[in-house]
Nucleic acid binder design. Structure first.
Length: 888
RNA sequence: GCUUCCGUAGCUCAGCGGUAGAGCACUCGCUUCACACGCGAGUGGUCACUGGUUCGAUCCCAGUCGGAAGCACCA
């Protein structure tokens, strides 16, 4: 044994241990066991570790380390994604800060090179942070979505889906981010409530009055879009407007005639019941416009500035005007024309780009789409049939809900950083989709009858999620048929927060089912959201973001990990508080000190053959019995993703059972036991510590390894397999438990009656049955030391001036003579009597209910009968004790 | 509006048909030879409310109230 220092220095030990393990190749797949794999949800290349990562990676690490102990050949696949918008934004910002030319000035290739340079320098910061956390990822297999291999996978998938008609080009409205000047997905749009206004504008009827009406009033929150109105719609059943349907109105400012049409879309209850239809700038209007063949009039350019063109008829004075300025001007002009009919204040939902923070504009553009509806069918079926399971199960509803309402997936982005769309256009715009330019040329040559032509590649790139949707198999080498793919696909678990079910899980499921004909993972484990200690969602704007690195600095990675695991309950968010982390730091210290105690008693972790059946001392048989129960329950908990239950089972056993009782009860063995008993106890101590360390290692990989190193003779923690002892000895367990109970009751009585802590007492067992006598004899050392009993006696009558306690049917008297506080003792007995009476009454009540006796299962009734018996006896003894006391 | 989830000790949360639990906090005591980041002993709960099912409900069902989240919509 190497002597453990008085304290564990996490700041020194953790990096040292991690480096040694990485060096030793322990994080790579080991051995010949049944493969087990997890792919990390790829962090953004721009990302740094936040508590969500800390939680998710702690849980994955626990699973991986646990499976390694169980002999599985584990691959935990690492990698990051290229985060199209985020990364381009970061690099552009950096260029601006350095006052370098804008990307448009340096051109596409130079800019992309700059991004690669940035990545080499500052990308993947999260890697070292994950190492600090102790994540046992296989770093040697690191992948990046823009790697050559993964890019090849992307091209292959695109080309195949295109060939199958599952990728197509279409002109539709998209969410346009005017800041980044690209389409973004619905999921990157945040809808926020803002204070807005609703303006009422009158559009005059062209042919004069109809039934006394000369105008129709529409309401809008976005006046600038009226310049592109193609119609006014009313509900066909809205009697106010029936006579106006088919009439024309004159659109002010642009001075254009548009029709009043009937459509189911307007809700007569809302606004004025008449809706302006701006097909090119509103998702709902777009649908209406399509139904009625209403022209789509585009008003804005890529920066969401107004345009004045021949097609849109917008007056020249609006040209290149910001959309919000245009709004003011439109209102002004309408008012000047006397057509403003009202302004209301209104809370409106406005879409914002989650990264740019600017108002998103619906824009009519050409984009590439994936036919998600078709791909979703097998992906849904895989979950319905149970091939992939959600844990907790109820998240599958969210998944179905999303999948059942899935929209075409817009995969093109007007960015420079990302996978370029593998489509080339001929001089007449004919698209040729191929995995590389040469193949595109072959297709083109064939198409144009042997003539070689110039081709221009589509300038857009693919949505980042397009490449990360392939992650579970592209990281394993696909489209190559690699050994890894064969061994590790499908993966065992995907662990993630619920907010990514749509973003990612759904898309991985679709791509995997289509290209592998096999699910990407057997289980989707959805973990909680980490909130602050007040249960508030963490956000930068609230300033309540907890930095996991700070906790690691202060307490080390082990306590943070244990805290996260212990709080990772299913179906509930977790609140992370410093106090909690501190508490588990204390647990680590407790274990450390217990190990130092073992060293003091010269009880190392040995490789000696250990057969619990051969143990002699009930104490040792008891702890072996408890230890095997603990390891079984931890395994069961982990198999069911109950990290909280697993953590608490270890904590309970290590502190509550091993330290508080076993080590204390071992002390009298070392005081007065035989040499054999001491040797046996040393052996069992070491074995039990080994069990604790092995089961705790997935949760606290650092301190467990440090202790094991120091305590073990000739073995290392990493070569231990998961303890699977099914040893059990109810008799020994009952005996030790009886002693533990008696000690507790004596301690409790002593305190309540104010017996001085140091006073050594005599314990008199009153008419004890044989069984109790045996236990008393076997456990006198333990009881003597822990309950401060000097002598043990047997009698039929309690000595005068005794505290009396009833434990497991036997009355024990503790003569304390003058020390006794008579009033306190009577109160104590009264309390016990009251409690027992209550229980007795409840049990009797049940048994006197005929229907209970008739209907309840026999064993429940029997249990209740034995409770009555037990409580009656106990009550009698307590009453006798009280009578005795009062007779004094 | 639709769909989830949650109301259990002061706090954070387990439990989920048959004796209410943990950690922290709190109170009292303790230099007991591993540990004061500790040891020992305690205090603290009509398990949100109302009905129903059941021999029996914190647990199942329905509703009410309170809180959170996601999705959709708001001209």
């Amino acid at each position: 044994m190497k002597e453990l220092p008085k304290n564990f220095d996490h700041a020194e030990a953790e990096p040292r241990i991690y480096a040694a393990q990485e060096e030793a190749g322990l994080f790579k797949p080991q051995g010949e066991g049944d493969p087990y794999s997890i792919v990390i949800p790829p962090p953004n290349v721009t990302g740094s570790l936040h508590v969500g990562h800390a939680l998710n990676n702690t849980l994955q690490d626990i699973l991986c380390r646990y499976q390694r102990r169980k002999g599985r050949k584990v691959l935990w696949q690492y990698g990051v994604d290229h985060a199209g918008i985020a990364t381009q934004m970061v690099v552009e910002r950096q260029m601006a800060e350095r006052q370098e030319p804008h990307r448009r000035d340096i051109g596409r290739d130079a800019f992309v090179q700059k991004v690669w340079d940035w990545k080499a320098e500052s990308g993947g910061m999260i890697k070292n942070q994950l190492k600090r956390l102790g994540a046992s990822l296989d770093w040697s297999r690191e992948r990046f979505t823009m790697d050559e291999g993964l890019s090849a996978a992307v091209r292959k998938v695109f080309v195949q889906l295109y060939g199958e008609g599952l990728i197509y080009r279409d002109k539709r409205l998209v969410n346009w981010d005017p800041k980044f000047q690209t389409a973004i997905s619905d999921l990157e749009v945040e809808n926020n409530e803002v204070n807005g206004k609703m303006w009422h504008f009158a559009y005059p009827l062209v042919d004069g009055e109809v039934d006394g009406i000369k105008e129709i009033v529409i309401a809008t929150t976005r006046p600038e879009t009226m310049l592109g109105d193609g119609a006014v719609a009313v509900h066909p059943d809205d009697e106010r407007y029936t006579n106006l349907i088919g009439k024309k109105v004159r659109l002010p400012i642009v001075d254009r005639e548009i029709s009043i049409i009937a459509d189911e879309y307007p809700d007569p209850e809302l606004g004025t019941g008449a809706v302006k239809i701006t097909g090119a700038h509103d998702f709902n209007d777009f649908e209406v416009a399509k139904r009625h063949d209403i022209p789509l009039i585009v008003l804005m350019d890529e920066e969401a500035r107004m345009m004045s063109t021949e097609e849109n008829n917008v007056p020249e004075r609006f040209h290149e005007m910001d959309r919000f300025e245009a709004r003011k001007l439109v209102v002004q002009e309408i008012e000047a024309m006397g057509l403003l009919r009202g302004i209301e204040d209104k809370l409106i939902m406005q879409p914002f780009g989650d990264r740019s923070g600017v108002v998103i504009e619906p824009m009519l553009t050409d984009q590439w789409y994936v036919d998600a509806k078709t791909l979703a069918v097998p992906a849904v079926e895989a979950v319905r049939s149970g091939k992939t399971k959600f844990v907790p199960e109820n998240w599958s509803k969210t998944y179905y809900n999303w999948m059942d309402n899935i929209e075409p997936w817009c995969i093109s982005r007007q960015l420079w950083w990302g996978h370029r769309i593998p489509v080339w256009y001929g001089p007449d715009g004919t698209p040729f989709c191929a995995e590389d330019e040469a193949s595109a040329h072959r297709l083109a040559t064939e198409h144009y009858g042997g003539e070689a032509v110039e081709l221009a590649q589509d300038s857009d790139v693919l949505d980042t999620w397009f490449s990360s949707a392939l992650w579970p198999f592209s990281t394993l080498g696909w489209p190559e048929e690699t050994d890894e793919l064969k061994a590790f696909y499908p993966t065992a678990v995907l662990s993630t927060a619920f907010d990514i079910i749509f973003f990612w899980v759904a898309r991985m499921m679709m791509m995997a089912m289509h290209f592998q004909k096999e699910v990407p993972f057997e289980t989707v484990y959805i973990h909680a959201i980490v909130r602050d200690e007040n249960g508030q969602k963490m956000s930068k704007s609230k300033g309540n973001v907890v930095d996991p690195l700070e906790y690691m600095d202060e307490f080390g990675a082990d306590p943070l990990r244990f805290t996260l695991a212990a709080q990772a309950t299913q179906g509930r968010d977790l609140s992370l508080s410093k106090q909690r982390v501190e508490g588990y730091r204390n647990f680590r210290t407790k274990l450390w000190n217990a190990s130092r105690f073992l060293q003091m008693k010269e009880a190392p972790i040995t490789d000696e053959a250990f057969d619990p059946e051969a143990l002699k001392l009930p104490l040792n048989r008891w702890i072996a019995h408890e230890a095997s129960a603990m390891t079984a329950s931890v395994a069961k908990a982990l198999d069911g993703f109950r990290f909280d239950e697993a953590a608490s089972a270890i904590y309970q056993f290590a502190w509550g059972t091993f330290c508080d009782w076993y080590l204390e009860l071992s002390k009298p063995v070392f005081d007065g036991g035989s040499a054999e008993e001491q040797a046996e106890t040393r052996l069992v101590m070491g074995q039990t510590l080994r069990t604790i360390l092995v089961t705790l290692e997935p949760f606290m990989p650092f301190v467990t390894r440090e202790i094991y190193e120091a305590m073990a003779e000739g073995s290392s923690l990493e070569e231990q397999s998961w303890p699977t002892s099914d040893f059990s000895d109810e008799k020994a367990a009952a005996e030790v438990q009886a002693a533990v109970d008696l000690i507790s009751e004596i301690r409790s009585a002593r305190t309540e009656v104010n017996v001085p802590v140091g006073a050594k007492l005599t314990l008199v067992a009153l008419d004890a049955p044989e069984e109790a006598k045996t236990i008393l004899a076997n456990q006198s050392g333990a009881i003597g030391r822990l309950a401060r009993i000097e002598t043990f006696e047997h009698a039929s009558e309690a000595p005068k001036g005794s505290i009396q306690i009833v434990s497991r049917g036997t009355t024990y008297a503790l003569p304390v003579a003058d020390v006794i506080d008579l009033g306190a003792e009577v109160a104590r007995l009264d309390k016990a009597i009251g409690k027992t009476e209550g229980e007795l009454k409840k049990a009797n009540g049940k048994l006197s209910n005929e229907r209970f006796v008739q209907n309840a299962p026999a064993e429940v009734v029997a249990e209740e009968r034995s409770r009555v018996e037990k409580f009656s006896e106990e009550l009698e003894q307590l009453n006798t004790a009280k009578a005795r006391l009062e007779a004094l």
